[in-house]
Write a protein that binds this DNA or RNA. Structure first.
Lengths: 341, 341
DNA sequence: TTTAGCACTCGAGTGTTTAGAGTGCTAAAC
DNA sequence: GTTTAGCACTCTAAACACTCGAGTGCTAAA
């Protein structure tokens, strides 16, 4: 069966109405909008159901877009609603306060996104997989404890407090700094393995004991850097949608509480913006949810992603540009930050 | 009417059974346990209802403890179930991994508590209100950005990345360190006000421009230190309780999402452990929820609190010792950390 | 004071009925 | 061939009646 222009119009109208109201859409409502009778609409709707683009909750109910219907709507029908100048300024303003700290910036970004969309929002930290060590810094935090800070070329910055069995002095910290940076500066973060630490320690001769806790901390902080951090915000927003009234919320929440899975989901999406409707995500927990993801790049290199998760009934036309813009902003800010080396 | 020993026994049995099953408790069930007939129990139960200690959802249902009933149970009847050696070891083991970083320790503590209790858990950072500045450290994080780290006598450690309009050098950072520590070391964190920063800047003469962004960062980081951080974990656990099936969860969640309110609630509780049943918290959002809070002390001085929030139907006898133990552990670990100055 | 017995109440579950929304189909109109 | 008016049909949600059983309160005897 052919998908005529009018069928597209009807599908679009149904998506719009359903997204707005959450109620199945009947033929009468559309007849007004399109200037034909409700009977005509009904004929067309029957075709659309046959084509798998609409669904009927039950015989005497209106129609609801199927996941395939949303897909078609997204790919071929919807007109993106660009975000206004005012909205841009608003978003940028919110992001600005955390411009100099990648970790806080990304948390802020997902918080912001959750706030404006009223869905759950997620962001991943710049992927550290291929990053090099830019520097390793030490700061004394008490008589016997110090903080190690690892700065990577991906812009991540991880710290960890560790403890020595002897009193620290600026002199000792300077030794930590020199010895560790001489050996590791410029090497890939992923090169800091237990084996590397072991051989490193062995090469230190009588200093081994002095440095052991610092080296352990280095290992931990490097492993931390390699992991993709995931910031999740606004899960609670989901409780407000009738789609998640019952126990349905729990399955989604379960998924959201697994950061690794969340990161994988975000990062495996291609393209600058990508929409996953329901089962398209291949995640049973999300079979009734949709995901809008946008990637951000640092200095032209793909680095991470940011997205929203909510019920399939969402305003894709509005969301896609919002998520995309936010990802671009984040990328721009991180690039700016990196440019200064 | 007098509260006889048997009445107490019946109340205790009802609380125990109701906490375990979630179903109103009928007279037959108790007759078995107490060796008297169900009619006798019914008479007693009628008295307990009259005294306001029990409630009846409807005429032909069993009894449920009222909030007043829980209160009496907690104050005069329940025997605390001390936590086992194995549980102690388990908890301590979980806490141990973050022993050297107060912030992470407290997040870990509330995470742990949420995990073992299956309720929502909250912890506050050591209150910074009266703390002094122990040291202010600087670390270069890129050509023009640096991290300022404020260590307070309360054990908090806050950092912030800031940016200068000129290239940083170790020499400049050393100046930042010297100038700022000379002026601020030992002074109360609360003394770092905008006015103080302004007069400080004014006193620097030609160095004012050099230091301005560092001073702004100092102000921000001091204000951060003064704020009580609140770590919330396991909100999602609440969704599993029938008490929160409907929209009821939302009101509680709303409250949980307001960190200041949460902090106030925790910190205004007296004593080492405190239980708030339902409306006792004076928070309408929590009128159907209970809170178990324990305070932790650093070096003998009251510093913060940690607690759980869940439906009024909770196993207080088990929870109270758990929360108390965790708070003690946290306090001990933080004291340890501080002792080394 | 306790208990057996019994009538009573109420909720949960199960049909039944009704109203209304929305459909599919048909036959006429365009 | 397409569109539309008309109408019979289907299904849901809400209202109502009915039953079952758990649990009660009361009474009178132990």
């Amino acid at each position: 069966m052919e998908l005529t222009g009018r069928k597209m119009k009807i599908l679009a109208a149904i998506v719009d109405a359903y997204v707005a109201t959450g109620e199945p859409v009947g033929s009468k409502l559309l007849a007004l909008d399109l200037g034909v009778s409700s009977a005509t609409i009904r004929n067309e709707m029957a075709d659309l159901v046959e084509m798998g683009l609409l669904e009927q909750p039950h015989t005497s109910a209106g129609r609801v877009p199927s996941q395939k219907g949303y897909r078609l709507y997204i790919d071929r029908i919807m007109e993106r609603k660009p975000i206004s100048q005012a909205e841009r300024l608003y978003l940028d303003g919110l992001l600005h306060s955390t411009a100099y700290d990648p970790e806080r910036l990304l948390d802020n970004a997902s918080q912001t996104l959750a706030g404006v969309t009223k869905f759950a929002a997620v962001s991943t930290s710049p992927s550290g997989g291929l990053a090099d060590i830019r520097a390793v810094q030490f700061v004394q935090t008490s008589r016997r404890t110090a903080m190690i800070i690892l700065l990577s070329s991906a812009g991540t910055m991880k710290n960890r407090v560790f403890r020595c069995d002897f009193d620290l002095t600026p002199e000792i910290l300077r030794i930590f700094f020199r010895v560790i940076n001489e050996k590791t500066a410029g090497m890939p973060v992923s090169g800091i393995t237990p084996a590397f630490i072991q051989s490193f320690a062995a090469s230190l001769g009588e200093m081994t004991i002095l440095m052991s806790s610092a080296l352990m901390a280095l290992l931990e902080v490097a492993q931390d850097s390699l992991e993709t951090d995931v910031c999740l915000n606004g899960q609670m927003n989901l409780l407000f949608y009738p789609e998640f009234e019952r126990g349905n919320a729990r399955r989604v929440m379960d998924f959201l509480e697994r950061p690794q899975d969340l990161a994988r989901l975000l990062l495996e999406q291609p393209g600058s913006v990508h929409v996953l409707v329901g089962r398209e995500s291949q995640r049973p927990e999300l079979s009734e949810s949709s995901v809008v993801v946008a990637r951000y790049a640092i200095d032209g290199h793909d680095a991470g992603a940011i997205g929203v998760i909510g019920p399939t009934r969402m305003d894709y036309a509005k969301l896609v540009p919002s998520v995309e813009y936010l990802a671009q902003s984040v990328g721009k800010m991180l690039t700016e930050l990196m440019k200064e080396e």
